[in-house]
Simulated scan of single mutants.
Amino acid sequence: MNKKNLWLVIVPLILFAMLAVCVKAGLTVGFEGWAYSETVEHMSPLYTGIVKAITHIGDSAVVIVFCLLLIALPKSRKTIALPVSLSVILSAVLNIVLKNLFVRQRPDILRLINETSYSFPSGHAMINATLYTMLILLIFRYVPNKLRRLALSFLCLALTAAIGYSRVYLGVHYAGDVLGGWLIGFAVSLLVFNLWKDKVWSKKQLQ
C-alpha cells in the first residue's frame, strides 16, 4: 500500500479517535440533540413506515444475503464477493469490539424499534458504510461506462446516508454514533480494498 492510500485509511481513523474523545467527554451532546430534533421534525406514521423500511435494508440479515448472492454468482465470486465479504466481516467484528470498548448506552428518547446492544459506533452505519464504500471502489474498477459508474456510486452513497439517517430518526442512535460508524466503515473498506489490490490483483497482472 502506497503512502497516499495509507493516509486515506489513517485520516478517518484519526477523525474517529477525535470523535470518540468528544463523545466520552460529553462534548457532542448539544450537536446530537439538535440533529435528533431536526431529524424528527416532520415525523408522521407514513414517514416512520418508510424510514423503518430503509433501516431494514441495512439489517445484518440483508447484508449477509447480499454477500451470499455475490458468492453464488461465478462471475462475481473472486472479483467482487470476496473483498466485499471480507470487509463486511471485519467491520462486523470490529463493531462488536468497539461497542464493548465504549459501552455507550442507547439514547433515552422515543425509540420506534427495539435495539439491545451498545450505541457507539452504530453497527448499521458502520457495516453499510463498509459495504457501500467497497462497492463504489469496485464499481470504479470494473464498470467502464462513466455515467453508469456515477449512477451506481450515487445510489450507494444515498443508501449509506439514508440508513444512517434512519437510525437517528428511529431513536436508536445518536448522530455521533452514525458519524463514527461511517468513519470506521470507510477506513475498513479502503484498507481491505488496497490490501486486496496489492496481494491479489497485482499477482494476477504478473501472471
Results as ranks from 00 to 15, higher is better:
residue 30 G to D: 05
residue 30 G to V: 05
residue 30 G to T: 11
residue 31 F to M: 09
residue 31 F to P: 03
residue 31 F to Y: 13
residue 31 F to K: 05
residue 31 F to L: 11
residue 31 F to S: 00
residue 31 F to I: 14
residue 32 E to G: 09
residue 32 E to P: 07
residue 32 E to F: 08
residue 32 E to C: 09
residue 32 E to I: 07
residue 32 E to R: 09
residue 32 E to A: 05
residue 33 G to S: 08
residue 33 G to K: 10
residue 33 G to D: 06
residue 33 G to P: 08
residue 34 W to E: 04
residue 34 W to D: 04
residue 35 A to F: 09
residue 35 A to R: 08
residue 35 A to E: 06
residue 35 A to M: 05
residue 36 Y to C: 13
residue 36 Y to I: 13
residue 36 Y to R: 15
residue 36 Y to T: 15
residue 36 Y to F: 14
residue 36 Y to G: 13
residue 37 S to M: 11
residue 37 S to T: 11
residue 37 S to C: 08
residue 37 S to G: 11
residue 37 S to R: 14
residue 37 S to Q: 14
residue 38 E to A: 14
residue 38 E to C: 13
residue 38 E to D: 08
residue 38 E to M: 15
residue 38 E to R: 14
residue 39 T to N: 09
residue 39 T to Y: 05
residue 39 T to H: 07
residue 39 T to G: 07
residue 40 V to N: 07
residue 40 V to H: 08
residue 41 E to R: 15
residue 41 E to F: 14
residue 41 E to V: 15
residue 42 H to V: 12
residue 42 H to F: 06
residue 42 H to A: 07
residue 42 H to T: 12
residue 42 H to K: 07
residue 43 M to F: 12
residue 43 M to L: 13
residue 43 M to D: 04
residue 43 M to S: 13
residue 44 S to V: 11
residue 44 S to H: 10
residue 44 S to R: 13
residue 44 S to Q: 10
residue 45 P to V: 12
residue 45 P to H: 14
residue 45 P to N: 07
residue 46 L to D: 07
residue 46 L to T: 12
residue 47 Y to W: 10
residue 47 Y to N: 08
residue 47 Y to L: 15
residue 47 Y to F: 12
residue 47 Y to R: 13
residue 47 Y to V: 15
residue 47 Y to G: 02
residue 48 T to D: 03
residue 48 T to F: 01
residue 48 T to A: 00
residue 48 T to P: 00
residue 48 T to W: 00
residue 49 G to H: 06
residue 49 G to P: 02
residue 49 G to L: 06
residue 50 I to K: 03
residue 50 I to Y: 01
residue 50 I to R: 01
residue 50 I to V: 13
residue 50 I to E: 02
residue 50 I to G: 01
residue 50 I to M: 09
residue 51 V to T: 09
residue 51 V to G: 02
residue 51 V to N: 01
residue 51 V to M: 03
residue 52 K to Y: 14
residue 52 K to N: 11
residue 53 A to Y: 04
residue 53 A to W: 08
residue 53 A to H: 03
residue 53 A to T: 15
residue 53 A to F: 08
residue 53 A to G: 12
residue 54 I to E: 12
residue 54 I to L: 04
residue 54 I to C: 01
residue 54 I to R: 00
residue 54 I to H: 00
residue 54 I to P: 00
residue 54 I to W: 01
residue 55 T to V: 06
residue 55 T to W: 00
residue 55 T to Y: 01
residue 55 T to E: 03
residue 55 T to C: 01
residue 55 T to R: 04
residue 56 H to N: 12
residue 56 H to L: 09
residue 56 H to W: 14
residue 56 H to R: 12
residue 56 H to G: 01
residue 56 H to M: 10
residue 56 H to Y: 14
residue 56 H to D: 11
residue 57 I to R: 00
residue 57 I to C: 05
residue 58 G to D: 02
residue 58 G to C: 00
residue 58 G to I: 02
residue 58 G to T: 04
residue 58 G to P: 00
residue 58 G to V: 02
residue 58 G to A: 00
residue 59 D to E: 12
residue 59 D to M: 06
residue 59 D to R: 06
residue 59 D to H: 07
residue 59 D to A: 09
residue 60 S to P: 01
residue 60 S to G: 09
residue 60 S to L: 02
residue 60 S to R: 04
residue 60 S to W: 03
residue 60 S to N: 10
residue 61 A to V: 15
residue 61 A to T: 13
residue 61 A to L: 13
